[in-house]
Nucleic acid binder design. Sequence first.
DNA 1: CGTTGTGTTGACAAGAGTCAATGGCAGTGG
DNA 2: CCACTGCCATTGACTCTTGTCAACACAACG
Lengths: 244, 244
Amino acid sequence: MDKAMDFLMRRLSAIGDLTEGDRQSLLTLPFKRRRMSRGEEIVTEGDEATACCLVITGYVHRSKVLATGKRQIFSLHMPGDIPDLHGLHLPRMDHNLVATAPAEVALFSHVAVQRLLDQSSRLTALFWRDTLIDAAAFRAWMLMLGQAEAPVRMAHLFCELYVRSQLVGLNQENSFALPISQIDLADMLGTSTVHANRTLQDLRLQGLVDFKRGRVTVLRWRELAELGMFDSSYLHIVEAAPAQ
Amino acid sequence: MDKAMDFLMRRLSAIGDLTEGDRQSLLTLPFKRRRMSRGEEIVTEGDEATACCLVITGYVHRSKVLATGKRQIFSLHMPGDIPDLHGLHLPRMDHNLVATAPAEVALFSHVAVQRLLDQSSRLTALFWRDTLIDAAAFRAWMLMLGQAEAPVRMAHLFCELYVRSQLVGLNQENSFALPISQIDLADMLGTSTVHANRTLQDLRLQGLVDFKRGRVTVLRWRELAELGMFDSSYLHIVEAAPAQ
DNA sequence: CGTTGTGTTGACAAGAGTCAATGGCAGTGG
DNA sequence: CCACTGCCATTGACTCTTGTCAACACAACG
């Protein structure tokens, strides 16, 4: 559980000021641990959420499925993220929360969180801010979905994940774990799997980045970021910007 | 100013409980009125926002422009909306806020709003909820951008605007004002203007909806909603669902 | 009454989806 | 240890949606 809280603290202090007092209050929050297998749904569209979920290990994503069966993945969440914090004030889930890879999560009851926030307007502001950054990432991604072609979108996605993963200290050298299938990748990019595969090969061929056996290796950060038109400011990180 | 507040109250009570006390507190908020001409920027990407903006009349949108010059419009805002409430905890703007059509807005200083919210956890929750619904609309739209073809997206967009416009009482019969160009429309849909034009003609030909001279007329709601795979639940409206 | 932005059209090119087949790899069970 | 199974990655061929370019029509406006 210390690991869980460690990631959370790291993320929260990356996006705002976190006092020692705040840390202490957060540590008093009771939670339940839960282990998820790949593809397992944490919350489903239409559910009434009563707890929110902190990712401890693994990956979790949010998605929605169209009547045609087509699925869009909105966001991918890594340790330290609370992907469904919005459930606090939007208890009826309008999308699914799914374990993309085997994952471990901590569940905090809304009641307990709300009690904590009621006592600290600082923490309220910080948590609110977290949900706002979430929305900012959506905007950045909408821009990509609407206006950029597949290779640009893929480059942008890898850049974002690289930066966020580095933020919580999960990068190794110039690579990070991304234990997802190309099918998942395609559903993030909004392309068919075939096209995602070809786009990936294209990026490989250009020597910008590779993605194999659940690991992304960034070979040329600068060019990748340029191709992906990546500007990390939408992540609203307060710390020094990560570089390579 | 009563008109401004009237729209705001109507919207807030549509998405949550608004007590008489809350209404009274909101009415104490000081604000500045500002008249915007079409295309005028209220806030620009990179700006430090110190006030938030309530739409009184007209239309306002949020957008971001890619290095290639391509623009994506994320959302369109009508009277009663506060499109940049997120600025309260995310003061560095990561996108533009622009008057789509001649508009009148009320500007509330963040300081005053924050002071009000500090005194009422009810209002804090409601405003937070408002920003969360904003994000929910982004998700719904990402699903469209990523997974649906142009006619579906267009139908969906018209459905959303119809419902929201009805919510604040701006509909006339089966139509509502949408004083925007097909260029703007295309930039919302993430298509070229040419394609948007053809898609529109397609919907016209099918007799589902028309959009001419700044006005959308819904001819067959049921079929339009079906084509657009529209399900209003992402708007998180508490009132009875609008129908036709 | 021309200027300007917008809507509309046709012809063509390019990006992306679909279908179908193949190959690889890991896990399972005999 | 090996066949079997199932999921995933990869490829080719083909179709379809969408973008681009360019021209023209139209309406609002000074």
